[in-house]
Design a protein around this nucleic acid. Structure first.
Length: 278
DNA sequence: GGACTTATCCGACTCAGTGT
DNA sequence: ACACTGAGTCGGATAAGTCC
C-alpha cells in the first residue's frame, strides 16, 4: 500500500517543546517499552510533512490453531516484527525525534489470504458466546532498538498473536499516532499508514509442522530487552525425542510395577497448575 | 462402528525470579 | 554463584464429538 504523507502544516517546534497536560502522557505511555520523552511531545498538526512507512521485517509463516478454549494458546510463528521509518520527503533524512515518539501504536487485524476482506468477524460458539478469530496482544508499542546488523530502528513486535481456526490468512498492521492533547470520549486517531503481511497458514494440531528457530533479528531485539520469546525450534524437538528414546529403554519395566506407587515427578506440578486454572 | 476432526490435556522443557 | 521454584511454552497424545 502506498505510504501516507502527513499534510503540509507549519512546524512550531522551534518555539520550544510543548508539554501535554500533566500526567496524561505518562499514563498513556506506561505500557510502552521505551521511555516516553514527554518534553518532546509534538502534535501531528504542528509538524512538517513527514513520510511514514511500515515495513514487515519478520513475516508470519505458520501457526497452530488453538480452538475456542482460553487455556491452550498457540502463537503465530515467527512473531511478526514491523519496522517504522519516518523520513523528511524533501531531504530523505530520517526524523529521529519522530521515530522516538512514544505514543505511536501499531494495531494488528486478521484478513483473508487475498487481502480483500477482514476475517475478524465475530465467531459464534455453540453456547452462543461470540469471540474473535485472532486473539492475543493485537496492539504494540514502539521500541527503538538495534537490529541484527547493529542498525537502529523503531520496531513493533507481536509475540502473542494466536488464531482460533485453521486456514490461510494475512495480517494487516496499521500505524496510529495518539495525540494526548485530543484524547476524549468518542474521539479517534487517524490511520497514518498500513502494511499487509504475506499469506501465512494456520494448521490444525496434527498438521502443524513445528516452530522454527528464532531469527537473528528476534535474538537481537530480545538481547536489548524487547519482550519477545527466543525459540530453539526443531533442535529442541530433536533433543527431546532423543531423551524419550533412552528413557523408554531403561524405565519400561519399572513403569509397569510402579504404576500406583507415588509417581510424583510432574504430577504434583500439574495439580497445582490445574488448581490455578480452575 | 470406524474414520476423521477438534479441543484439551500431558509431560518435558525453558526461563525468570527469589532465597541463601 | 548457585539451587530451587513457579509460570509459561510447545510437541505430541488422547478424549470427545461428528460424519458416513
Amino acid at each position: 500500500s502506498p505510504p501516507f504523507t502527513v499534510p503540509d502544516t507549519p512546524r512550531a517546534i522551534k518555539q520550544g517543546p510543548r508539554a501535554p497536560p500533566s500526567g496524561l502522557v505518562e499514563r498513556a505511555a506506561a505500557g510502552a517499552r521505551i521511555e516516553a520523552d514527554t518534553t518532546h511531545y509534538r502534535p501531528l498538526a504542528e509538524q512538517a510533512p513527514l513520510h511514514y512507512e511500515l515495513r514487515i521485517r519478520q513475516q508470519p509463516l505458520a501457526a497452530r490453531a488453538c480452538g475456542f478454549g482460553e487455556r491452550d494458546r498457540r502463537v503465530v510463528d515467527p512473531p511478526p516484527i514491523i519496522e517504522l521509518s519516518v523520513t523528511d520527503p524533501k531531504t530523505g533524512e530520517t526524523d529521529a525525534e519522530e521515530l522516538r515518539y512514544a505514543l505511536s501504536v501499531v494495531h494488528c487485524s486478521l484478513w483473508t489470504a487475498n487481502g480483500e476482506e477482514e476475517e475478524e468477524t465475530a465467531l459464534v460458539q455453540s453456547d452462543r458466546r461470540t469471540t474473535r478469530r485472532l486473539m492475543g496482544q493485537l496492539v504494540a508499542s514502539p521500541a527503538v532498538l538495534k537490529d541484527e546488523n547493529d542498525r537502529e530502528g523503531c520496531f513493533f513486535c507481536f509475540p502473542d498473536l494466536s488464531c482460533r481456526t485453521p486456514g490461510c490468512f494475512r495480517l494487516r498492521f496499521v500505524l496510529m499516532r495518539i495525540d494526548p492533547m485530543n484524547l476524549q470520549a468518542g474521539g479517534y486517531s487517524p490511520i497514518i499508514t498500513e502494511v499487509l503481511s504475506d499469506v501465512f497458514t494456520v494448521y490444525t494440531a496434527k498438521e502443524f509442522p513445528g516452530m522454527r528457530p528464532s531469527s537473528a533479528l528476534t535474538i537481537a531485539l530480545k538481547s536489548q530487552g524487547c519482550n519477545i520469546q527466543v525459540k530453539k525450534g526443531k533442535e529442541r524437538t530433536a533433543a527431546r525425542s532423543r531423551g524419550h528414546a533412552s528413557d523408554d529403554d531403561e524405565e519400561e519395566e519399572e513403569e509397569e510395577e510402579d504404576e500406583d506407587a507415588a509417581p510424583e515427578r510432574g504430577t504434583g506440578r500439574r495439580k497445582k497448575k490445574r488448581q490455578r486454572q480452575a
